[in-house]
Simulated scan of single mutants.
Amino acid sequence: MALPTEPVGQAPQISIDDFSFRRGRKFGTIIVDLQTHKMLDVLPDRTKDSAAAWMAAHPEIELVSRDRGGDYASAATTGAPQAVQCADRFHMLKNLGEAVEGCITRHLAAKRKAHSPDLPEDHQPIEQAPRPARRSPKVERLQQAYREERLARYEQVIALRMIGMSHPAIAERVGISDSTVSQ
Rank of each mutant, 00 (worst) to 15 (best):
M1Q: 11
A2P: 14
A2S: 14
L3I: 08
L3K: 11
E6T: 11
E6S: 12
V8Q: 07
G9I: 02
A11K: 04
A11I: 11
P12H: 05
I16E: 01
R23S: 01
R23G: 01
R23Q: 10
R23Y: 02
R25S: 14
G28W: 02
I30N: 07
I31S: 10
V32G: 02
D33L: 00
T36R: 00
K38G: 06
L40Q: 04
L40W: 03
L43K: 01
L43T: 06
P44M: 04
D45S: 15
D45E: 07
R46D: 06
R46N: 01
T47M: 14
K48V: 05
D49R: 10
D49G: 12
A52I: 01
A52S: 01
M55H: 01
M55E: 03
A56S: 12
A57T: 03
A57P: 06
A57I: 02
L63G: 04
R66H: 02
R68D: 05
G70H: 12
D71N: 15
A73C: 08
A76N: 05
A76E: 04
G79I: 00
P81N: 04
V84W: 08
Q85I: 00
C86R: 13
D88L: 04
H91L: 06
N95V: 07
L96T: 12
L96N: 11
G97S: 04
V100K: 13
E101D: 11
E101N: 10
T105A: 06
T105L: 12
R106V: 07
H107A: 14
L108M: 13
A110W: 13
A110C: 12
K111P: 09
R112G: 05
K113C: 02
A114S: 12
E121R: 10
E121C: 08
D122I: 10
D122P: 03
Q124G: 06
I126Y: 09
P130I: 12
P130W: 02
R131M: 13
R135E: 10
R135S: 15
P137K: 12
K138C: 04
K138P: 05
E140D: 11
L142M: 13
L142K: 13
Q144S: 12
Q144V: 09
Q144W: 09
Q144T: 10
A145H: 02
A145L: 01
R147A: 13
R150F: 03
L151Q: 09
Y154K: 15
Q156R: 14
Q156Y: 09
Q156W: 14
Q156V: 00
I158P: 01
A159N: 04
A159P: 05
A159L: 06
L160R: 09
L160A: 00
M162A: 14
I163N: 05
G164A: 03
G164H: 07
P168M: 00
A171M: 08
A171V: 08
A171Y: 00
A171D: 02
R173E: 11
R173G: 05
S177A: 10
T180P: 09
